[in-house]
Structure formats: C-alpha cells, structure tokens
C-alpha cells in the first residue's frame, strides 16, 4: 500500500510540474543589418601630437534577415577632425562580419573626431567624440603587507566638466628603475568579474578589458575635487631577487565610454532578460544609425615607483 501511495504521489507531482516546451517563430523582427562601431582614438602625452585610432567594425546581420554578406560587399569608413575629412577607407570587407581598423592621426585635446561607416543596404552609422584634456597627475604610495600590496593614489579632477578616468596597473621586477617606455606587466584586482554572482567593481564604476584591464571611475561624486583611492592587490607577484616597481596607466576617457561599458557589462549578465522574465538591457550607444561606442582617450603613465620591502 505504501509503495502505491508513493508511486501515486510521484505521478501526481510529475503530472503537475512536468515542464513542456513549445517552439515558435518570431514575427515582425527588423530585417536590416547595421554597423556596430567599437573604438577609441587614443592620444598619448609621450607621442608628438599623434593619436592611435583603433576601431572594431562589425557588420551585424539582422536576426530575422539575411545573415550572410556577399564577398563583394564593402564598407567605406570616413574619419573627420573638426568636420574636416582626414581619411577615407573604402576597402573594408564585411563578409566576415568584423575587423580591426587601426591608424594614426594628428589630433589635439579638444578636437572633435567623427567617424562614419557606409555601405549599400545599411544605414549610415556615425559617431563623434572629443579628445579629452591631458590626464591629471597621479600621486602614488605603496606598501607591502606580506603577499599583498597596498596602494593609495590620488588625483585632481577638472571642475565643471563631465570626466571619466580609467586606470590600469603594471608591475615590473628590475635591478634598476625601468624605462618610461617599458609597459610592464599587468596586475589585476578582483573587481568587475562578469562571472561573479554579484558584480563588484570596488571603488570603481565599471571594469573592462581592452588589451589590459581598465578600472574606470566617473567624476560625478567628486567633480572638481581630489579623489583618493585605496587598493589591495592580493598575492602580488613580488620578485624574490630583484626590486619590484609599480606604476599606473592613467586614461582620461570621454564619458560615453563608461556609459557604454557599464551597459555592456549589465547586458552580458542579464540572463533573466534573455528569456523574457526581466527587462533587457538597452545598451547605451553614441552611434547614430548603428550601435556601439566611439570614444576619445588621452593617456599617460605615472613614474615607476619602487615598492619597499
């Protein structure tokens, strides 16, 4: 009897809670492809007036339309500086959906740089950004705490402007002070991990990867003031036989980059949104007629700081 009761209970529960799947097609989806621009124009204090232009260009097919582009399909990319056309690239193939475009242009802080991407069957995508002023001077203090490195650094913010700053942290072991052109090795903080259940950005607003990890903060809470940040690098790769040095790459970035990277991070983790159980994340874009982000960066490095034993 007990056995039959158990089987009956099991059958009941299976009947009630068995999930069923049903497949269906989506209707009314947009069929036009679009361009996604994701790039920076990076001015560097150490270079003489030139800036590095790096942009990923994605030709993104519509989810509902033709998802293959022909071999002959081309995109024309135009670059303007303060409304003056300074470059045309008309050879970009879009068959493979994406590619990295890199170049050097002479720009100065305050210049407005505009890029457009055009191709038959696409809306013209256009985005503009202004090269930020030189990054602020950063003061660093380091101290060793066992296997950890405690770092305290501070910098001043421009009053009256909307600024964002991205930092990347480097170390190097050397018998003497490393040269300014030595990029050093990346050291990371446990922040901004998209794989984490709770995205923890520490004192920063967002963290992203662009070759290195960049920890970014916006000045909305300290506009015009001085910001001090304290960090602990756990299990820091101290050298046992050489002197360890530390420095920071400081990027003054245009605010649209931080808005975009924040939205991208949110969107990537919005799993409930993917299945219709939560609002989806509509990623910020400053690209009209397309998607993505084009931002200006002005970068500098602090001096190498010797880490005391």
């Amino acid at each position: 009897m007990k056995k039959y009761l158990k089987i009956s209970a099991l059958c009941l529960c299976l009947t009630v809670f068995a999930a069923c799947e049903v497949e269906f097609d989506f209707r009314n989806l947009d069929e036009d492809p679009l361009f996604l621009l994701d790039g920076n124009i990076i001015a560097d204090l150490s270079s003489s007036g030139s800036a590095s232009f790096q942009m990923y260009l994605y030709a993104v097919p519509s989810a509902a339309g033709n998802r293959e582009f022909s071999e002959e399909a081309r995109c024309t990319l135009k670059v303007y500086r303060n409304s003056e056309l300074i470059d045309v690239k008309d050879y970009i193939t879009i068959e493979s959906f994406y590619g990295l475009i890199a170049d050097e242009y002479a720009v100065s802080p305050g210049d407005e740089v505009t890029v457009t991407a055009e191709s038959d069957g696409f809306l013209t995508a256009s985005a503009s950004t202004v090269i930020p002023e030189n990054p602020p001077a950063v003061e660093i203090a380091c101290s060793r705490d066992g296997d950890n490195l405690d770092v305290r650094f501070s910098f001043g913010d421009n009053a009256g402007t909307d600024d964002a700053y991205a930092f990347s942290f480097r170390t190097l072991a050397s018998d003497g002070k490393p040269g300014d052109n030595d990029p050093g090795n990346l050291v990371e903080l446990p922040y901004g991990d998209l794989g984490s259940p709770v995205i923890d950005n520490g004192p920063f607003d967002v963290v992203w990867e662009d070759g290195y990890s960049y920890y970014c903060i916006r000045d909305d809470s300290f506009n015009g003031g001085r910001k001090e940040i304290e960090l602990t690098f756990t299990s820091f790769p101290f050298s046992s036989d050489m002197t360890s040095y530390f420095r920071i790459e400081v990027r003054h970035v245009s605010p649209e980059r931080i808005l975009y990277e924040t939205a991208v991070a949110d969107k990537a983790n919005n799993i409930l949104g993917f299945v219709g159980l939560a609002p989806v994340t509509f990623a910020y874009t400053n690209v009209s007629g397309g998607s993505g982000c084009f931002s200006g960066v002005n970068t500098a490095y602090t001096d190498w700081v010797e880490i005391p034993d």
């Binding site: 497949e23 269906f24 097609d25």
Partner: peptide
C-alpha cells in the same frame, strides 16, 4: 542562423 523561440509551459 535564423532565430526561433522555445517557450516553456509550466502547468
């Protein structure tokens, strides 16, 4: 490459 939905019914 076309998209389709897989709906899940609970009850």
């Amino acid at each position: 490459k076309s998209l389709y939905g897989t709906g899940r019914a609970i009850f």
